[in-house]
Each structure stands twice: as C-alpha cells, then as structure tokens.
Amino acid sequence: MNKLKLAACFSFLSLALLATENVFSQNAALAKKSVISKKKAGQVQGQDVFEYTLQNKTGMQVQLLTYGAAITNIVTPDKYGEMSSVVLGLDSLSHYAGKENSLMGSTVGRVANRIANKKFSLDGHEYTLSSDIHGGVNGFDKRIWKAKEVTKKNELAVEMSYLSKDDEEGFPGNLLVTVTFTLKNNNDLVIDYKATTDKATPLVLTNHTYFNLSGGRDSKALNTELTVLADQFLEYGDGSMPTGKILNVKETPFDFTSPKTIAKDIEKVQQYTNGYDVTFALRNQTGKLALAAKVFEPISGRELEVYTTEPGVVFYSGNWLSEKVKGRNGVPYTKNGAFCLETQHYPNSINTPAFPNTVLRPQETFTSQTIYRFLVRK
C-alpha cells in the first residue's frame, strides 16, 4: 500500500472513530437527561386512558396511568446497579379496570380506608355512602383523571385532576382534586395532593402502591425490615375498623420503633386477622413534612424512606394477595408478596371526634405531601 492510500485509510478510520465517539457521547448525554413520554393505553367506559413514563437523570423510571391516577411501575437500581421494578403491577389496562385489581398503585378517595356503617353526619345532615371503604363502589381508583405534563425546577412531573361531583358515591360537594407526581433527580418520588370544595365534605387521600424492594428476587416481602416512627397505633375490631382507642405499640406485635422484619411477629397478628393492616399514629402531628417510615430489603440492598405531612400511615402486609391473580409479566401474586405504606388521616375520623379533623370546607384548600425516597445500602 502506498503512502497516499495509507494516509487516506488512517483519515477514514479517524473519522469513523470520531463519529462513533460522538454517538456514544450523545447516548451518554441522553441517558443523563430527564425525559417524559406519553402514550395511549386504551379506553375505559369509552374514554381514553393514557400512560406516562418519567425518567430522571440517574435512569430511575416511574410509570403512571390516568385510570385511577395510578402508579403502575417504579424501576430503581439495586446495590449492584441493576435496574428492576420495585412495585407490583398489571400487564394491561383491562386488568387495571377489572375486578381483580386490588387498588394497585391507585389514588384512593374521596375518603380512603373506612367509614363505619357507610354513614356519617355533617352540619346537621346524615349521609349514606355506597360502601364503607375506600371512597365507595366507584371511588377515585376507578375514575379517569385528566393529566398534563408540568416542569418543576428542571424536574419532570405529571399533574392529574378529577372533579368529584356532588353526591358522587353519597358524598356532599363538588370536589376538585389534583395529584402531582414529581420524579426528582435524587430518586425521590414526590406526591402532592390539593383539593377544594363548594360544600363541606370529609376528605382522606392516599396512594395504594404495593412495594417489593427485592426487584423480583424474593416472591415474599417478609424478610424486609421495617421501621415506623410511631409509638402508638389505632386499635381495631372486626373488618379492621378502628374502635376509637389509640394504644401504645410497646410489647405488642405492632412495635416497629426499631428495625424489624415483617415476618418476625406476623403470626401473632394473624391470631386476630390475616396479617398487618394497621394505622400508626405518627410521632409527627404538626402537619409539616417529616420522616414516617424506613424500609430495608437485604437481598437487593434497596432502602425506602417515607416522608409525609399526614398524621398517620397504614401498614398493610399484602394479606389478601392471591396466586389466582397474575401480575406483571404473568407472574402470580402471592400472599405477603408486597407491602403498602399508605400515608393518610385516620380511618373513620368523620365519626370519631377525638381523631384529627378530615372535613374540608368551602374557601379552604386541602394540601398534603408524601415523598417516597429510594436509596441503596451497599
């Protein structure tokens, strides 16, 4: 090969390497860029339902559905840097809209949790609801929410809104609710709730995501360690309905004041019910954001911290998850295969004057914030 041809060959090779380097640089830049995408998931009751995917600069992803304002997937790294899902989900919109959906990742309201006997009195009027639990037969988890993308301090978010009309499921007042999901670059998932009404109404909002921090390596969540910053819990009777008494956790199976696996005392709880489904009265009762719970999963090294402005958190140990129901990728659910930490006001507060107030009135604005912070212990 003569010198001219050799020089041309090296020149071509240099250009090729430069082009390849540019491609890698572009891909690397893309991987570090926050992105949001939207696609149509299908229809429910003749209305379009959309799925949003948020990805932050670290590669963490959160998927949302406008049906039920639901979190359908959260993908985070483990201690080895491997990305995998840390929440239960379903494969299709038809499954989310089906009877076997156990509030999977849904926004729950108008009043999450329980109201005794489906009745309450407010300002001299008695109201009868369609159900005693989770906002009625067709609560917020079964409604189609409007959504829009919003940018908050260079971090991506989706704001979902729903107008719950007067007498919906038996509740008074036209209630406008917005829930904003923000994925931050430090791997915080922030949920901001806001609501206004034209008539006094009870209001308790929460999110019902099922967590399994092993990322699929353990079909159960029983070896997960939980700490709850609460010295008291709500005594409950049949059907997990609070009795109105607030008891100390000390020397009970409900003591999670120091790290303890979910499995350790669950059999003691199962003497009375099918597992943990308990409301903790948090130490923080100020209405300001504070740490409520910490979780550690030993196989993956993942940690979860839960912060909230709410006075309570419900710990549910997935007692009624059934292998008869198939979740994401056709994998069957299993009892205790996941847990929920639902930040909220206390159940049946509207009928229990000693509990913190849950009545929202005209001219008032309800606000609440919960943060799910994902970390890794190496």
Rank of each mutant, 00 (worst) to 15 (best):
residue 360 L to F: 06
residue 195 A to R: 01
residue 220 K to R: 13
residue 290 A to W: 00
residue 319 N to I: 14
residue 373 R to E: 08
residue 158 V to K: 04
residue 103 L to Y: 14
residue 171 F to A: 02
residue 282 L to A: 08
residue 361 R to D: 06
residue 114 R to W: 10
residue 115 I to N: 00
residue 319 N to S: 14
residue 197 T to R: 00
residue 140 F to H: 01
residue 42 G to Q: 07
residue 226 L to Q: 05
residue 236 Y to W: 10
residue 372 Y to D: 10
residue 210 Y to Q: 07
residue 329 N to G: 03
residue 202 P to G: 01
residue 200 A to C: 05
residue 361 R to F: 05
residue 92 S to F: 11
residue 1 M to C: 08
residue 155 E to N: 03
residue 242 P to R: 03
residue 116 A to K: 14
residue 2 N to Q: 11
residue 90 L to Q: 09
residue 13 L to H: 07
residue 304 L to H: 04
residue 228 V to H: 03
residue 185 N to L: 00
residue 178 T to S: 15
residue 167 D to Y: 12
residue 332 P to A: 10
residue 172 P to Y: 01
residue 371 I to T: 11
residue 262 I to L: 15
residue 147 A to W: 02
residue 113 N to D: 15
residue 265 D to I: 06
residue 111 V to S: 00
residue 86 V to W: 00
residue 194 K to W: 09
residue 324 K to I: 09
residue 109 G to K: 00
residue 215 G to Y: 11
residue 98 G to Y: 12
residue 85 S to F: 02
residue 328 R to Y: 13
residue 335 K to S: 14
residue 349 S to D: 03
residue 328 R to S: 13
residue 231 D to K: 15
residue 229 L to R: 11
residue 368 S to G: 11
residue 59 G to W: 12
residue 143 R to H: 09
residue 26 Q to V: 11
residue 191 I to A: 03
residue 2 N to R: 09
residue 208 H to V: 11
residue 73 N to P: 01
residue 165 K to V: 14
residue 373 R to H: 15
residue 378 K to H: 15
residue 297 E to A: 07
residue 221 A to E: 08
residue 297 E to P: 07
residue 207 N to W: 06
residue 330 G to V: 06
residue 169 E to C: 04
residue 60 M to I: 03
residue 85 S to N: 15
residue 190 V to F: 06
residue 131 S to M: 14
residue 213 L to G: 04
residue 293 A to D: 05
residue 56 N to H: 02
residue 378 K to S: 13
residue 99 K to L: 09
residue 369 Q to I: 11
residue 280 F to M: 11
residue 42 G to H: 05
residue 128 T to L: 12
residue 173 G to C: 00
residue 95 H to N: 14
residue 262 I to C: 06
residue 245 K to C: 02
residue 61 Q to Y: 06
residue 25 S to C: 07
residue 212 N to R: 08
residue 71 I to E: 01
residue 346 Y to P: 03
residue 123 D to R: 05
residue 186 N to L: 00
residue 218 D to A: 09
residue 46 G to P: 08
residue 335 K to C: 13
residue 365 T to P: 12
residue 173 G to Q: 00
residue 183 L to W: 01
residue 10 F to S: 13
residue 301 G to I: 11
residue 311 P to K: 02
residue 106 S to T: 13
residue 360 L to E: 04
residue 194 K to V: 10
residue 107 T to R: 02
residue 331 V to F: 05
residue 366 F to E: 07
residue 305 E to T: 05
residue 169 E to S: 06
residue 267 E to P: 06
residue 26 Q to A: 11
residue 270 Q to M: 15
